[in-house]
Design a protein around this nucleic acid. Structure first.
Length: 826
RNA sequence: GCGGGCGUGGCGGAAUUGGCAGACGCGCCGGGUUUAGGUCCCGGUCCCCGCAAGGGGGUGGAGGUUCGAAUCCUCUCGCCCGCACCA
């Protein structure tokens, strides 16, 4: 397509200029109000695809818009450059991950520059930079010292494909690895953990005040999984010294406990199993430990539930009524949650109901189900109702009964109120090479010892062999492995595990505030200045992992004294940008279904492509890249062509100072209305309607220019000036070029202030009043904007259309909403 | 199963608080410019009846609240996302 202007030349020209002049560099002592705009720093997978284009278009819009609003905008960029793909590539090709990674970084960086996205590149950080590694390790030591990092043997998720341990968050619902798709196994290993659970309550409560998508907040709430209830002891019948502790969220149902269940991994299982049942119990235990999560969770099938439980031969006493109930072992009870044992109340719990039915265990209702419940099939009733069969709780509602039951347990000294979380501590050890080494050494005499800060960073050596052995090359590197104990100087070995890359991304936004700091990860005063991030942008795939870790880490850094005075919530507003699908699946490097922007840079330019991404729909909606997409993009190119011609072609103008005609006044009102609309739209992320309003303005200007009398020069200039400024954050190159063309010598459009509207001109003198009969549109009348209620009614009743319907009669009722509407009810 | 969201022309999508449904764009139709195609310019385009004026219907479906519902409520169908034995 022939363009109205040389897209490529103009865009390159301005990109060079922004970089040379450092237009978007900001210093920490900048006196303007601060604004921190940030796109999630990317894993460098190579040249940008449309997903990146969309992401960085939104980010760049925020940077440029806020700059024009007079803010000092921090717009940094960096790379999440540690990670598995580079290491896998190294195993395959023998090329060092650094070489591989840095080549990908260069590709992505150049794509972004070509997109016209602007950053303060002086602040660029890479997670594999020795400087960054050092501060990462310093932070680790501080957390360790504060007890927020610890080492523990624990059953962990082991991915045989990746040959590493995974965080719970990286195991999918079907028990497979989110990255390789392999079935994850359980293993008992010594691993490093971060104590995120210490922050469970705060992380949960602080969600309420965040300006984040509700959906993401709900996901985090569910992930943290707070549940309130009670913990209490069940005494073993015939052995008063042996007690089994259980957790329940329904202490009100305690009278309905007809059996209890213990997890197969429970330490007391052995002691609680009687000899006649030992064989069966042992079988179940064996199977549970070997079964993958997938098999273990083949849920919904009651027969399976039956097979997966066995009687221990022991009975425990229900403390509420003193009755003995049988104790079962079943793998539907998890050792990792609560106490690893439950009281089972089949009448009010669906799983217990299924299990009880199968094992022919008694069922006692403690909540009166509604009328007809049994007739409709019965089953466990988990709804509201009145307590029955419950001794001192009879007649109470559920929530009162809960409180009463807990009070009773506390009075008896057998239990107490208890809050449990689903959230587990964050396992951060990874048996990989291409990550930040964990700064610890193992000494025979002193155990695990921190590497002193003055010996940091601990860096992995380069001359290692990348072999598909399933172990980190570090394990086979004597140079790395063998060291001395920091305490006694004796022989010691280094920790060969590296940190989960999510650790790197949990504080990079803080380092951006002060990336040059040689003394500390960042100066708290710098982070105080820029934080929180005012606008965070990135994919919703990080709704739980990254966003939760970063929220935790920021708090932890404050609490260990590395970030005094920094706000505890790092991301004030978060835009979860929609993903782009091609042929029904997400556009991504790993799927290989990419559409490169390069071709469009030649046809409609970065401006045209950016405009398309903004215009196609709301930024948080997913979009399908379809057959029609190229036509939409071309349409955006055409709009920019029309803009170009409107600004460059000679428009006949009237000479000399002259009173404004109606048309002149009208166009001014449209201009100011548009400023108001676009400003509001950009503030509320309604980028698509902002573009639409700009298109409408251009349409109006072209109609105005076509009129025979010629344009009023000042009105025309004001209009073009406003339109160019409104579009500057959206299509930065062409607007900069046209601004320079119209006002040579003036500072660039990007250095101009965002246009302001004149409220006088936005205010409407007359409006179209809608006249309805029985809620149906019948007529429209131009009326004064400040028309009175009685005048509005009179005007409406005077309408011919209304008169025709009334036919001489009088209306039953007239609803008057001046000046917009009158509804005549007959 | 639980939780959240969505459903509007041929398509992407608009519609501050319940108040003109379909802005803007794509596509399509017609016209102009052009040797021609493309570009560019003008006009039309929710559906039905009608030459028109005009009328009727219409926001997945069925009810309801209201003077008035795409918007609120109930039920229902369909799709998408998240979680999934968490006691």
């Amino acid at each position: 397509m022939a363009r109205a202007y040389d897209v490529e030349a103009i865009e390159r020209k301005w990109q060079r200029l922004w970089e040379e002049e450092g237009t978007y560099q900001v210093d920490n002592d900048d006196p303007r109000d601060k604004y921190y705009a940030l796109c999630m720093y990317p894993y460098p997978s190579g040249a940008a695809h449309q997903g990146h284009v969309r992401n960085y278009t939104f980010g760049d819009l925020a940077v440029r818009y806020q700059t024009m609003q007079g803010k000092a905008v921090l717009s940094p960029f960096g790379f999440d450059s540690f990670g598995l793909p580079a290491e896998n590539a190294a195993i395959k090709t023998g090329t060092h991950p650094r070489v591989f990674t840095e080549a990908r970084m260069a590709e992505l960086k150049s794509s972004l520059i070509r997109l016209g996205a602007v950053y303060d590149w002086r602040r660029e950080i890479w997670s594999h930079d020795p400087e960054y590694i050092k501060w990462n390790q310093v932070i680790f030591l501080k957390l360790w010292e504060a007890g927020l990092a610890y080492r523990q043997k624990a059953p962990v998720n082991w991915c045989p494909g990746c040959q590493t341990v995974l965080a719970n968050e990286q195991v999918l619902a079907d028990g497979t690895c989110e990255r390789s798709g392999d079935l994850v196994e359980r293993r008992e290993l010594e691993q490093w953990f971060f104590r995120i659970t210490a922050y469970a309550d705060e992380l949960l409560e602080a969600l309420d005040d965040l300006d984040w998508p509700e959906k993401v907040k709900v996901m985090q709430r569910n992930w943290i999984g707070r549940s309130e209830g009670a913990e209490f002891d069940l005494v073993v019948e015939g052995n008063e010294d042996l007690k089994l502790r259980v957790f329940t969220t329904r202490p009100d149902t305690s009278f309905g406990m007809t059996y209890a269940v213990i997890a197969p991994e429970h330490p007391l299982l052995d002691a609680l199993t009687t000899d006649p049942h030992r064989k069966e119990v042992e079988q179940l235990r064996q199977r549970a430990s070997h079964e993958t999560d997938i098999e273990r969770m083949s849920e919904g099938d009651p027969a399976a539930l039956g097979k997966r439980g066995a009687f221990t031969g022991t009975s425990v006493l229900n403390p509420f009524n003193g009755q003995p109930v049988p104790l079962y072992v079943a793998d539907y009870v998890l050792m990792g949650y609560g106490t690893g044992a439950i009281m089972a109340v089949p009448a009010e719990d669906e799983r217990d109901w299924a299990f009880a039915t199968l094992h022919k265990l008694p069922i006692v209702r403690t909540v009166q189900p509604p009328e007809g419940w049994e007739a409709e099939g019965g089953g466990a009733y988990t709804g509201d109702g009145v307590k029955i069969n419950s001794g001192f709780m009879d007649g109470l509602d559920i929530s009162t009964a809960k409180a009463r039951a807990i009070d009773w347990l506390e009075e008896q000294g057998i239990g107490e109120r208890k809050i449990n979380y689903r959230l587990r501590d964050w396992l951060v050890s990874r048996q990989r090479f291409w990550g930040c080494p964990i700064p610890a050494v193992y000494c025979d005499d002193h155990g695990v010892v921190p590497v002193p800060e003055d010996q940091l960073p601990v860096l992995a050596p380069d001359d290692v062999e990348f072999l598909p052995t399933g172990q980190s090359p570090l394990v086979n590197s004597e140079e790395f492995l063998l060291t001395t104990c920091p305490i006694d100087g004796g022989p010691a070995t280094r920790e060969t595990d590296t940190l989960d890359t999510f650790v790197d991304s949990s504080w990079y936004f803080l380092r951006f505030c002060d990336p040059w700091n040689k003394e500390q990860p960042f100066a708290p005063i710098a982070a105080q200045h820029w934080m929180p991030v005012d606008q965070y942008i990135g994919g919703i795939e990080h709704a739980i992992l990254h966003l939760l870790y970063a929220r935790f880490y920021t708090r932890a850094l404050i609490d260990v004294g590395l970030a005094d005075g920094v706000p505890r919530e790092p991301f004030k507003r978060y835009l979860a940008q929609g993903l782009i699908r091609l042929d029904g699946s997400k556009m991504s490097k790993s799927k290989g279904n990419l559409i490169s922007p390069e071709h469009y840079y030649e046809t409609v330019g970065a401006d045209g492509l950016r405009l398309f991404h903004l215009f196609v729909g709301p930024p948080f909606d997913d979009m399908d890249w379809s057959d029609q997409t190229d036509q939409l993009i071309e349409g955006c190119g055409k709009f920019l062509d029309r803009l170009w011609r409107a600004c460059t072609e000679v428009v006949p103008a009237r000479e000399g100072p002259e009173a404004l005609s109606d048309a002149d006044g009208g166009i001014r009102r449209v201009v100011h209305r548009t400023i108001a609309d676009v400003t509001r739209d950009l503030e509320r992320w309604s980028y698509n309607t902002a573009v639409a309003h700009c298109m409408e303005l251009l349409n109006a200007l072209q109609r105005y220019a076509r009129e025979d009398v010629g344009v009023h020069q000042e009105v025309w200039s004001e209009a073009l000036g406003a339109l160019l400024r409104l579009l500057a954050p959206l299509t930065p190159h062409v607007t900069a070029e046209l601004w320079e063309h119209l006002w040579p010598g003036d500072p660039s459009v990007h250095l101009q202030r965002w246009p302001e509207y004149d409220p006088e001109l936005v205010r409407q003198d007359t409006v179209t009043m809608v006249i309805q009969v029985n809620g149906k549109l019948r007529d429209r009348v131009e009326v004064d904007a400040d028309i009175s209620e009685s005048d509005a009614e009179a005007v409406a009743l005077a309408s011919e259309k209304v008169a025709a319907v009334l036919n001489g009669g009088s209306p039953r009722r007239v609803v008057v909403r001046p000046p917009k509407l009158v509804n005549v009810v007959v």
